[in-house]
Simulated assay, not measured.
Amino acid sequence: MTDAPSAALAAPQDTPVSNETIAALMAHRTIRAFAEGGLDEPTVTTLLDAARHGATSSFLQQTTIIRVQDPAIREAVHGASRQPYVGGSRGELFVFVVDLHRNAVIRQRAGASLEPLERMSVFLQGLEDTVIAAQNMVVAAESLGLGTVYLGSIQGDARAVIRALGLPERTFPLVGLIVGRAEQTPQYKPRLPRRITTGVDAYPRLEAQEEALAAYDTTVQEYYDLRDANARLDSFSTLIARNLGVGAAATAPTLEILREQRLALH
């Protein structure tokens, strides 16, 4: 097995048109090893402001970001995620919360019905706001040369995160994010080809792209062959067949928890 990545994995993919923002997007890598400590306050404030200024569905602004600094709370999030790099004090930990509670308070004060806040459609609006805010922070952080890792793994025990953060009804901790100074330089993880994941006027049928999928499977096998942290010989198709729906986050009673939080009731 070679100990050097191929050219395809050693550098981000080129784009026909580029600038600093596009280059930063194309150079995204998930970082799981961070230098000790957090970030300076001006940087944290900038990241929070970048996140707050993302697009918001119908101007409802249904997201809240919680910066975790208390070691006990961070340990609770660590326990929920079961990821070793979440524990300790390396990097800044943020939790992005779908927040319909704030608007419930505003409507209650106005004497307006709270029923709309229990609709799946309104929850999805809040989810959209929250994902956009998180991605805004990732782009801002990586443009500053920082490393990031999303923590969808907090869904492994969302109830524990709700308790640790004191989240009220009509809120849901969607995703965590660590931002910090990277202490690793992983290979670039290859993405599915454009022809498989994008279409014009119609859905791109996978059945018409078997050759492209086979080539991608080979590339992914090479990626896992070279990856220092987890050397495996898995194709993308094998990963989907074996791993989709597996793990604590994927098997958590999410709908039950949403209903406990009075979200997505109908």
Rank of each mutant, 00 (worst) to 15 (best):
E92D: 08
A104H: 02
F123L: 14
L117H: 07
G87D: 07
E128F: 14
I132Q: 10
F123C: 04
T130Y: 10
G91N: 09
G111F: 11
R119K: 14
A134M: 14
L100I: 02
R102F: 05
V97D: 07
A110Q: 15
Q108V: 00
Y85T: 01
A104K: 01
A104F: 01
S89K: 06
Q135V: 01
R109H: 09
V86C: 03
L127I: 00
S89E: 10
V97N: 06
I132D: 12
Q135K: 03
G111Y: 11
G88S: 08
P116R: 02
L124H: 09
T130D: 12
V98G: 02
E92Q: 11
I132C: 09
S113H: 07
A110V: 00
D129W: 02
T130S: 13
I106R: 14
E118R: 15
V95N: 08
E115Y: 13
V95K: 13
E128P: 00
L114A: 08
R90S: 15
I106E: 13
A104N: 03
R90L: 04
L93P: 09
L124N: 06
A134Y: 02
G126K: 10
G126S: 08
Q135W: 12
I106M: 13
E115A: 15
V131W: 09
R119L: 12
I132W: 09
A112P: 00
L100N: 04
R102E: 07
V122H: 12
Y85L: 01
Q108M: 05
A134I: 02
D99P: 04
V138C: 09
A112K: 15
D99A: 06
